[in-house]
Design a binder for these strands. Sequence first.
DNA 1: CTTTCCTATATTGTATACATAACGCATACA
DNA 2: TGTATGCGTTATGTATACAATATAGGAAAG
Lengths: 253, 253
Amino acid sequence: MKAAPEREVDRSVSQTVKAQLALRDQILSGALRPGERISELQAVETTGASRTPVRMALVRLEEEGLLEAIPSGGFMVKAFSERDISDSIELRGTLEGLAARFAAERGVSARELEPLKECLAAIDELLRQVPISIESFSSYVALNARFHALLTELSRSPPLVRQIDRASALPFASPSGFVMAQSALPEAQQILIIGQEHHRVVIDAIENREGARAEAVMREHARLAVRNLRLALRNRTHLDLLPALALIKTATD
Amino acid sequence: MKAAPEREVDRSVSQTVKAQLALRDQILSGALRPGERISELQAVETTGASRTPVRMALVRLEEEGLLEAIPSGGFMVKAFSERDISDSIELRGTLEGLAARFAAERGVSARELEPLKECLAAIDELLRQVPISIESFSSYVALNARFHALLTELSRSPPLVRQIDRASALPFASPSGFVMAQSALPEAQQILIIGQEHHRVVIDAIENREGARAEAVMREHARLAVRNLRLALRNRTHLDLLPALALIKTATD
DNA sequence: CTTTCCTATATTGTATACATAACGCATACA
DNA sequence: TGTATGCGTTATGTATACAATATAGGAAAG
């Protein structure tokens, strides 16, 4: 007879997934500072999983780009420069531009565009109230992420979708990420409206099968987001709203 | 006293890396067919590593895109459609286009362009002999890969470099991959020369800080490669040269 | 007082044992 | 004869034990 296990296991999801989610949350919430070495034993304690699934999760997070392997062994939380983030946003916009081009060139039925338009309308509805409340802003973030995900899917290109997912793994490279960065700024309202205009144009371009125009507007969309992130980083008034900002190493670090 | 271990361990590289390289080789060499489930125990036998490093390697290969997780557990070798591959090439070209644009816009010193030009000249030298021998063709592949890697680095953008590396992990999405696909074709010679012309243009554009032109030529470069892959797949005369072609599922599969 | 070396401790890399779930096969019943 | 169910085997998911290395701290010597 073995000793009764102290650890209570949640069998509904795999331990590996549980550990991965828990660790990612710890990183993005700022509980683990960038540059900090992640102790496996500590991760075992906090996640409740055993060392093997924890290690698998660490490997996945490294591939995701949130962790960095230490040559002597183990992993540390990755730190990003401001340019890293803006490059990531531009990169994502470029990929989404390609997705939009694929969608336009390959043709999309009206039925497939329907969910996109619903998203668009729902966001329009949200933006009608000025100023936007915190609650409706979080719905905006969700709707915006959904719009981008749907748009990506329209490309019908699994490799591209996969790559865009990877590019979105980095905080702030994802649409919800940079949108959130804008939230605390007074200019946010205007920016969101311009973003909606971009969304409208890309749908129109896809409908009319204008690949180049669809691509161009998504890249412009990303450039808007980059300018915006810069602005958001200048006045760091929203660090409490978005702890993941701590991942960005500033000049003082 | 424990039994003497039969397994002889190679301590020069980590078991995880060894297993990853061995498994990738097995996949790309065609020893493991696409769709085939990878048995961990079998992998333990063939790689010489234990189950833990083998599992780590499997996770990494899944993130790399060569394996696919089976819902019920375990991994299988991923199969790619012809469109998956051509999309991957176009995707890579788009990313390299962005890299070239970054390089041009951010400025590159003459000293940094030197290795690129050396590469270019070396390839020119190789292409002088007609027809190209198999040996010099493999040097061409290496030089071409080096050129693309150097070009990527010029962007000075770690996130972009990382993403391009990821995109190159898929067979045939890498420059050496699609170049090899061309090797068995009679048109190869002409294509290589056009490719050199693209290389020349991109260097010139970067020197003159013409970001848009630099980007455009890299995307054109990728489109050439796509047309070429299609051609190569039509006459499947080179399956023996490039076993990884088996990863592409045809209509008959 | 500083520097270097040695030792001890802690943490990672690896191996293996155990538990659980899935798949297949055989048998029985309809 | 076909289908369904149950059992057995096999493989994966998880946990833990063991080994090796890196790091930090202390002691000794210059």
